[in-house]
């Protein structure tokens, strides 16, 4: 029995199965956990990682970080 719902389901199924799932052997599970966070509303994670990176940069460069920003601001 072919209903509109079934036709939509088949279309969506073909859409999803068209691309083979990503596998990384033993790392597949942690990879799936990480990408789950990035597929929908990734911003909290992107901002969090950026913040950690910038704090690390500040700990390495100190106030010389302002020189890097001066260069970037002139970069457009």
């Amino acid at each position: 029995m072919k209903t509109k719902t079934y036709a939509r389901f088949v279309k969506r199924w073909e859409e999803v199965t068209d691309l083979p799932p990503q596998t990384l052997g033993p790392l597949t599970r942690p990879y799936k956990k990480l990408t789950k966070r990035l597929k929908v509303m990734p911003w909290p994670w992107l901002v969090g990682i950026s913040l950690i990176g910038v704090i690390g940069l500040y700990m390495i460069l100190g106030s010389a970080i302002t020189f890097l920003v001066t260069l970037l601001q002139r970069g457009f």
């Binding site: 990682i49 910038v54 940069l57 500040y58 890097l68 601001q73």
Partner: peptide, 30 residues
């Protein structure tokens, strides 16, 4: 406009600018 100073406000703005820039960069990579 640049240059940024090494005073507290200069460093604070620099860190904020870098966080936003890095976020946009990660978005681009994604």
């Amino acid at each position: 406009p640049p240059p940024r100073t090494t005073r507290t406000l200069g460093v604070a703005f620099s860190m904020l600018y870098l966080v936003i820039s890095a976020t946009i960069l990660f978005w681009k990579i994604l």
